[in-house]
């Protein structure tokens, strides 16, 4: 007869590493004492408050647990904290701020979604990509005066993007020095989001231009059926340049991020 402990203990039996999502300092200490040196402990969090050796920076508090764990595991793999094929126990929170969930995952280097890659190995600064995502999520939640809006931001590799696009009208950001993440920008971009075309943002977060018609070739781009021309243009430009594109869909209200022509991240702004 199995006791409850045995049954649930299977979840963490023989794991190679423990991945903790935003643990408190005391919990982290208890964990490191309990597991000793047999099991690696990886901390995934917004900041390394517990001083862990193996630490993955979580730029966005993913509301979707699957996405969050995928990010953490890919980050751990990328930093070589865990090896391909390791079995990991991920401890995270779903319903409260405290750790309440354990998930058993196999780290598989071949099946990456690219969500960690999107933040860390893009041309643009991770903080810039996070700021743009924050902005787009906010735009998706509030819309423009209550109406749903669509938007397309191309982040990074701005010189090349500018050469692969053409202006639809005068650039309102010409000779301006506005960066995403400046407090004024949220309001400004909300007003400008009614403009057609894409926003172009440089590696360091400077808003280079609005009103750009992207001329990247969509040839060979494979994105899920049903997405419109805005997504197609986003995927196309990321295939032709080293930029990342963040799209807010006008029809279903979801935020999607593209890199290298592929859809790597899908978020529902309502969950943030």
């Amino acid at each position: 007869m199995d006791s409850l402990q045995d049954l649930l203990g299977d979840l963490v039996a023989d794991v190679d590493a423990l991945v903790l999502f935003s643990p408190s300092g005391s919990y982290y200490e208890r964990v490191t004492e309990a597991v000793g040196s047999d099991v690696d402990v990886v901390v995934v969090s917004g900041e390394n408050a517990v001083g862990a050796n193996a630490f993955v920076d979580l730029p966005l508090a993913f509301a979707d647990v699957g996405e969050r764990i995928r990010f953490g595991v890919e980050g751990a793999l990328d930093n070589a904290y865990v090896d391909d094929g390791d079995v990991l126990a991920c401890v995270t929170s779903v319903f409260s701020d405290e750790l309440d969930t354990v998930s058993r995952v196999r780290a598989d280097a071949d099946r990456r979604s690219g969500v960690y890659d999107l933040f860390v190995h893009s041309r643009a600064d991770p903080a810039v990509i996070r700021d743009v995502l924050d902005l787009v999520v906010e735009l998706g939640r509030k819309g423009q005066k209550g109406e749903p809006v669509g938007a397309l931001f191309v982040v990074g590799d701005a010189g090349k993007v500018m050469n692969k696009s053409r202006p639809l009208s005068y650039n309102p950001f010409e000779k301006s020095h506005v960066h995403v993440g400046d407090p004024i920008v949220n309001v400004m971009l909300k007003e400008f989001s009614r403009l057609d075309g894409a926003f172009v943002i440089s590696d360091s977060g400077k808003i280079v231009s609005a009103y750009r018609y992207l001329e990247g070739s969509a040839e060979g781009v494979d994105i899920p059926k049903g997405l419109g021309t805005r997504h197609m243009a986003a995927a196309g430009i990321t295939r032709d340049t080293n930029a990342v594109a963040v799209v807010l869909s006008e029809s279903d209200g979801l935020v999607r991020a593209f890199k290298g022509g592929d859809l790597v991240l899908e978020l529902d702004p309502e969950e943030y």
Partner: peptide, 26 residues
């Protein structure tokens, strides 16, 4: 350079034998 923007991001320029597309001006 920042205030007058004689060249901007996306322009092709040549400075001291180095030619290419401007990616960033700070």
């Amino acid at each position: 350079v920042l205030l007058n923007q004689p060249y901007g991001i996306g322009d092709e320029i040549r400075v001291a034998e180095n030619q290419g597309i401007v990616q960033e001006v700070d």
